[in-house]
Every structure is written in C-alpha cells, then in structure tokens.
Design a binder for these strands. Sequence first.
DNA 1: CGGTAACCGGACCGCGCGGTCAACTTGCTA
DNA 2: TAGCAAGTTGACCGCGCGGTCCGGTTACCG
Lengths: 200, 200
Amino acid sequence: MSSPRPLRADAARNRESLLVAAADEFAERGPDASVADIARRAGVGKGTVFRHFATKDDLIAAILLDRMNALNAFGERLVDAPDPAAGLWEFLVAAGEQRQQRDLSFLQDAGEPNAEVTAARTRMFRTIDTLVDRARQHGVVRADITGTDIVLLMCAPNYVTSYLPGASPDLWRRYLGIIFDGLRPDGAHPLPQPPPSSGT
Amino acid sequence: MSSPRPLRADAARNRESLLVAAADEFAERGPDASVADIARRAGVGKGTVFRHFATKDDLIAAILLDRMNALNAFGERLVDAPDPAAGLWEFLVAAGEQRQQRDLSFLQDAGEPNAEVTAARTRMFRTIDTLVDRARQHGVVRADITGTDIVLLMCAPNYVTSYLPGASPDLWRRYLGIIFDGLRPDGAHPLPQPPPSSGT
DNA sequence: CGGTAACCGGACCGCGCGGTCAACTTGCTA
DNA sequence: TAGCAAGTTGACCGCGCGGTCCGGTTACCG
C-alpha cells in the first residue's frame, strides 16, 4: 500500500540507526533534543535525517509508532493467553518495562497529532479494552473500572518514579502494585467521578 | 535576611503581575513559553522581567516557591486538625486542586536546581511525612507506605488525566480515589519493591 | 515641590535551532 | 562493469530565543 521501491541497503541501515539514536537522545535530553545531535549520534549527516523524516515531528511519530505497535502486538498475544486473570497484569508490567528502559512519554504531545500514530493508539486502546473486560469478568478488577481508566493509569508508575532520579530502576513496580491494589474489587470504595468516555 | 529596602509601589505591582502572567503562560504553553510573551501578558517590557528575575530559571523558581509554600502552609494547618484520619485525604485533594487549576509540574525539572526551592520542597516533604505517619497510626493507610510514597503518588491523578484534554476538570478525583483505595490497609497485597529512601 | 535613585522599555546581540540545497558518492541493475 | 538513480553531506538560511543596556520616566523623601 505504500512502498513502491525497497530501500537501498545503506539507506535502510541509516534509517534504523537514526531511530535508535533519536530514541536514546530524546530519552536522555528530553523533547528538545536537537536534530543535529541525533544525526551525530547516529553517525550520519544532518541532511540524512531530513531525507528519511521530512520533519522532526515525523521522526518523533515514527518512534512512537514503533513502540506502540510493539506494545500492542504483545497485548494481542495476551488476549488469547490461557490465564485471563494474569493477562492485564502482564501487560501493565510490559508497558512499565518499556517505559523504564526509555521514557519517551513526553513525545506523546510533541508536535502536531499524526494520523498513523493516532490509528496505532486507537488499536492499542481496543486491545486494552478487551484485556480489561476479561479481567473484570473474572473478578480480578472492580466493576466500575473501564479500559480508558487503565490506559490513563498505566503511565503513572513510571511517571511518579521519575521524580526520584537516583532510585532503583525497579521502583515503578512498587507503584504499579499500589495502583493495582486500588483496582481490585476487595475493599473498593465508591469513586467520586464517573469514568471518562472512551474517545479523545 | 534579604530585603534591605522595600520595593517601590509600581515595582511591587509589576512583580506580582509578572508572577501570575508567567504562571498562566507556562500553564498554557508549557515549559517553552517565552519571556517576551510573559512580559506582553503582564503588560510590561521584556527588560522589566529581567530586572525582577535575573534569569528565566529564577522566574520559574519564584513561581514554584509560591506554590509550594502555599501548599505547605495548608498541610501544616492540617497536622493540628481535629480529625487526623481525614487530614491526608484533604491534603491530597488540595494538591490536586492546585494542579488542576494550573498544571506546572513540568517546571519542577526546568532549569538548574534552586536552593530556595529545594529547601521549600524539603519542608513540604516533612509536613507530608507527619501527615502520613498520623494516618498510618490511625489505620487509614497500610503499614508499608511511607511519606515519600505519597510525595510521589500525589502528582499522579492530575498527570494521568492530562492525557485526556477534553475530559471533566474533576476527573482527577476519580484517580485519586483509585490510588487512595490502593493505599488502604483492607485487601492490601505485598508490594514487589521496598520504599525508596526519603532523600533525593 | 524639587532632586534623585530606583525603575521601565524596547532596540539590540549572539546563539542554536529546524529545515534547505547543490555538489558529491555509492549501491543496484542490465 | 558501466551508468545512473538513489542516497549522503555539511555549509547555509531565517527565525525566535534568553539576556543586555542605556536613555527616558516616575515614585518617593526631605
């Protein structure tokens, strides 16, 4: 549907180098990492960056697309897994590990919204919805929790630990544990606000 | 300790205008809001900004200082309140309301660490510590939770809802409710990670 | 009310950014 | 292996940023 020509060998190599260099650079320096630094880190000229990604925003979108597709693929495998109770938990752990390795959450809002990224996000939300539905049916999760709730909360453990830069790299698991306890049916108190509608 | 001379009337007025204009501008445009825009919003020249705050970082520090001192004052009042069980909850609600009104969390990491801000933060952490200690003693909060845990988690509800810009302005209360349920002793599961040490 | 120090404003500076381009190099194919 | 399209490069551009500075203005004090 899109590729009329395969990429030349060196070009494909450079594209891949750029994606990992950019991800590393963003993770280290934040959203203001410069294209020049990314190019240097990948060992290519600045012009090469813009040959592969017309815009800095496009580069960011390509990174997000890769990560969301990877996470979504993992989630889809979990939907058909034998143990439906553990599925949601495993998914949240995988999401946390991905973000622990390289926190690129701030890229979500960087630049203009991208159509492909939005589509991938929607796909992932659907996967999460079914994971949550199954978990709820099996009584692992309280009845008043929706998929959108989990979409929002799954980012929290890594976020909160980012305030303690020197802490253990596994500290996020502690807060995932606390939040997950809050999602369980046992001892749940009524919530002061209804769940948000699933869309944007 | 610091003010050998009182500020001239117009200077004091301008300083105040600048602080609120800067807070508004940062809340709307994020950490990259420009000093020129802030000056325009406050109705003063750009030079006036730098007369009051030598550096953009200093301006940010002044904003953070104001907010943390306000929140800390509220917390200290709660420490001596009659109902120790509700104290922690009320504090977390106040923190959430402050952040809902204007989310400036991203300013925490902006610029170099400032001594006064660090001191104010330490003071607030101590207040939170005593609030949590009292709550734990009264059985409102599970035994394996520390003040540092709450310091980290208190930012989460507003953060997660920021991913849904169109949602209800009170949605954060829902996630504060979920997290608080996770902090309660009833039905608590053991946590996979020990609490972080209280310091940085 | 007059003198003056504090204060204000905005033109100005250097810098680093995202993005462009034309000359050069290189992997692919017939 | 010859030819060429595809790919690469880094000098270059315009822009907007944080920060400076000095001539004009204004609130305060005696």
